[in-house]
């Protein structure tokens, strides 16, 4: 799924352990839920100071989902 790949690509570029990055996909009331999982030591790198990195990932993801005509929600799992 393309939106899942988008999150994978972004997250892998930000972390120290790209091979530990996983994105799980679920569906809830017609909304796509993406769960981003990274190595424990990398959590800070995908959340960022004041959550700015996570916010930026969501902004890019939402722009992509609007183009695709879908609704998507990103959770960062820890």
């Amino acid at each position: 799924m393309a939106l899942r790949d988008l999150v994978l690509t972004i997250a892998r570029a930000l972390v120290d352990e790209p091979e530990a990055v996983a994105v799980h996909e679920r569906e809830r009331n017609g909304e796509q839920i993406l769960e981003l999982e990274v190595a424990r030591a990398d959590i800070g790198k995908v959340i960022g100071k004041d959550g700015r990195t996570a916010q930026s990932i969501r902004t890019v993801l939402i722009a992509a989902s609007q183009k695709a005509g879908r609704r998507v929600h990103l959770d960062i799992v820890d």
């Binding site: 570029a13 930000l14 790198k45 700015r52 990195t53 930026s56 990932i57 902004t59 890019v60």
Partner: peptide, 14 residues
């Protein structure tokens, strides 16, 4: 310009 700003921020981080 919010999406561009986000893309730039992520690129900087990457």
């Amino acid at each position: 310009g919010q999406v561009l700003q986000a893309l730039q921020f992520l690129t900087h981080r990457a």
